[in-house]
Design a protein around this nucleic acid. Structure first.
Length: 560
RNA sequence: UGGGGCGUAGCCAAGUUGGGUAAGGCACAGGACUUUGACUCCUGCAUUCCCUGGUUCGAGUCCAGGCGCCCCAGCCA
């Protein structure tokens, strides 16, 4: 790593490069991802994960995974396992750098004692409501608590008895003694410890007092030797307190807090409370619903970790509140899957086609390449027989201008196969087209036509006899408005068409063995993956990850 | 006249330290290629950087004054 030539990709990297040059931290770069295990991770967390682990990678440093578990009321073991799984899935490895703030409780307690001894913290007997009243408002200063001037001895005694469990929940707190008139609310004697008799997922019933975030976080960072403590914008106001704690307590080093803007994605929601409500009201099936921007949902939908990381890199790191266009994520998956997804043919809305001049019992194995972007992925055989299915939308009785697909009397090429011509249209009693009678030109295999006539339309198909039936779930954006997070009544903007279930899809036979989680490009349609929850070997379920770009759809839309 | 932060294209975002004549990506629009209307490839897309003044030969960058948006009054993180 040659620091002198490194180009910073964003302001945080600039800071790190400067620190490296000035040898501020002895050349070390240590970051951390500090989730509270009180819910599932979402796309916003993904950005933080990519940033913190990415920085460590880039600068030859390390990144810790630390659970910020200081509030037993909200945190559960179930979430810590889910979070670990999500971080791993994104492709990051914390090695042996797994930490829990709860493991620092004893040391934190000692640092609290140190503050008390220095006259910088005191036990307050005010009730929660009184504390709020004494705190003042945004425009008026607060007032000192009547308990603020207790002696060090009394504070020590009281705090020890708080720990010993002598006082009821909520009856007292330990507060930092800073400045009740500070224009920064966080500096108005913030609470450091509260009494809460609650079972902690890690420390059990060892404690009945628990430290607050503002006290725990800077010390945890210092204890772990974190050099750059990266968090989101809303903690900017907490930085003076972060620094105050580190200045007044004997910690081994001095980490720097740096704030950046969190990632918001259009047409999604990331607030835990709101996510939970969608689940409870049944708008989605759970935290891993493929329409949700949770990591679990994104994974089940079939978005790849590579695509998510690419997105995080592309959106950059800055301090602007931003709402990133969903189209950006979609572009990232297409970009990734185009190179990696095997191609296959699948007819989602089947229309039966009989090739009249194709022998009844004949079956041809046609050669189909698995990925035109990657020759090493090889090819496969796809069976063709007299009766096939094509997509309903690939036939129109009365086609508009520029329509290149099948119509009465018109020709189209079967992908990897022959040119067929529509000779007759069969309808049911309601006038619905139920079957096409076609003929094929045996001399057109291999892409050419003997007479050099141009056949522009190409259509995917599946042999009826060989078809594998499957369910395909078509997902669309969950909300009808760009920024549902902005709307109080976001629930009323849930897209009623966010999921369309197609039951009778016909897949080419090679898909019969598709493993859960594996992804494919269904040619001319999009990228799909085998659902990891509902798909069974004998009843396959595919999720549409994202549709292919569709220029024709745009042209049609423009023409009304 | 509470404090903190942020304003560069429809959406992200470089550029601000050391003033030198607006990167890149997404989206969008044309065109080429094509056995996926995909991919790929070309081309176009801010005479202007929230506004108004000022300094300067020269300002997105410096100065002054406005305006707009976000965050903070949990014993949550």
């Amino acid at each position: 790593m040659d620091i002198s030539n490194m180009q910073p990709a964003n302001f945080i990297e600039s800071i790190i490069i400067e620190d490296l040059k000035s040898d501020k931290h002895g050349g070390r770069v240590v970051t951390r991802f500090p989730p509270e295990p009180n819910g599932y991770l979402h796309i916003g967390h993904a950005k933080s994960i990519c940033l913190n682990f990415g920085l460590a990678e880039k600068f030859n440093g390390t990144c810790h995974l630390r659970f910020d578990d200081t509030d037993p009321a909200k945190e559960e073991l179930e979430y810590v396992e889910a979070i670990k799984r999500d971080v791993k899935w994104l492709g990051f490895d914390w090695g042996d750098k797994l930490y829990h703030a709860a493991d620092y409780f004893e040391q934190l307690y000692d640092y609290a004692i140190e503050l008390i001894e220095k006259g910088l913290a005191y036990v307050d007997d005010l009730s929660a409501e009184e504390i709020r009243e004494y705190r003042g408002t945004l425009t008026e200063p607060g007032k000192n608590s009547p308990y603020r001037e207790r002696s060090i001895e009394e504070n020590l005694d009281l705090f020890k008895r708080m720990r010993a469990g002598e006082f009821p929940d909520g009856s007292r707190v330990l507060r930092a003694k800073i400045d009740m008139t500070s224009p920064n609310m966080n500096m108005r004697d913030p609470v450091l410890y509260r009494i809460k008799r609650m079972h902690h997922h890690r420390t059990g019933d060892d404690w009945c007092i628990y430290p607050m975030y503002d006290f725990t976080h800077p010390i945890s960072d210092a204890l772990e030797g974190i050099t750059h403590s990266i968090c989101t914008l809303e903690f900017e106001d907490h930085r003076p307190l972060y620094d105050w704690v580190l200045e007044n307590v004997s910690v081994p080093c001095r980490p720097q807090q740096i704030e950046f803007a969190r990632l918001n994605l259009s047409y999604t929601i990331t607030s835990k409370r709101r996510l939970l409500r969608l689940v409870e009201l049944g708008y989605v099936t759970g935290w891993d619903d493929p329409r949700l921007a949770t990591i679990a949902g994104i994974r089940r939908r079939g978005y790849t970790p590579e695509a998510v990381r690419d997105l995080c890199e592309r959106v950059g790191v800055a301090k602007n509140n931003s709402l990133v266009d969903m189209a950006m994520l979609e572009h990232c998956v297409r970009d990734d899957l185009n190179k990696r997804a095997p191609r296959a043919m699948a007819v989602l809305r089947p229309l039966r086609v009989v090739i009249e001049n194709y022998p009844e019992d004949k079956v041809e194995e046609l050669e189909a390449v698995n990925n035109p972007e990657d020759a090493s992925m090889g090819s496969r055989k796809v069976p063709l027989s007299r009766v096939i299915y094509i997509e309903q939308e690939d036939f129109m009785e009365d086609p508009p201008r520029r329509y290149r697909r099948l119509a009465p009397g018109r020709e189209v090429r079967l992908r990897y196969g022959y040119v067929i011509k529509c000779e007759d249209v069969i309808k049911d009693e309601n006038g619905q087209v139920v079957e096409l009678r076609c003929t094929y030109d045996p001399d057109t295999l291999g892409g050419s036509t003997p007479d050099g006539r141009k056949v522009r339309g190409i259509v995917h198909w599946v042999s009826a006899r060989h078809a594998v039936k499957a369910e395909v779930r078509l997902y669309d954006r969950l909300f009808t408005i760009e920024n549902p997070a902005d709307a109080e009544d976001y629930v009323s903007y849930v897209n009623p068409n966010s999921l369309e279930v197609l039951k009778d899809c016909m897949l080419e036979p090679s898909l019969a063995q598709a493993a859960p989680g594996s992804f494919y490009q269904f040619e001319r349609q999009g990228y799909f993956c085998v659902d990891t929850v509902d798909s069974k070997p004998d009843s396959l379920v595919f999720n549409r990850i994202v549709a292919l770009r569709d220029t024709w759809a745009k042209i049609q839309q423009r023409q009304g």
